[in-house]
Amino acid sequence: MTIDKQTVNRIAFLSHLKIDENKIEEAQDEFNKILNWVEKLSEVNTDNVEPLSSVNENSLVCREDIVIEKNQADKILANAPVKEYGYFVVPKVVE
């Protein structure tokens, strides 16, 4: 599998990253290097092997249903670039 320029642009768009035109080729190259490296795994025969999504199966530890954080607004908004009336303020995002 190889990544073309169009795919680089699309991934950048989806991630809301701006990649300069002259850096696209470099990014494309990086993507392909990673993919080629991971491609190595396809040499292993995985017939009859169940897909594994975590190496930590059976280790999910749940917590009790208790509330710890309260009155968090000041802390949560401390680094907000723009805030008003206790809200984060962002450019209009309605569709």
């Binding site: 710890i68 309260k70 607004a73």
Partner: peptide, 15 residues
Amino acid sequence: TASTKFGADANQNVS
């Protein structure tokens, strides 16, 4: 572990 309570002041129940 933030509260789920409906109707609190904005951004108070946030971890």
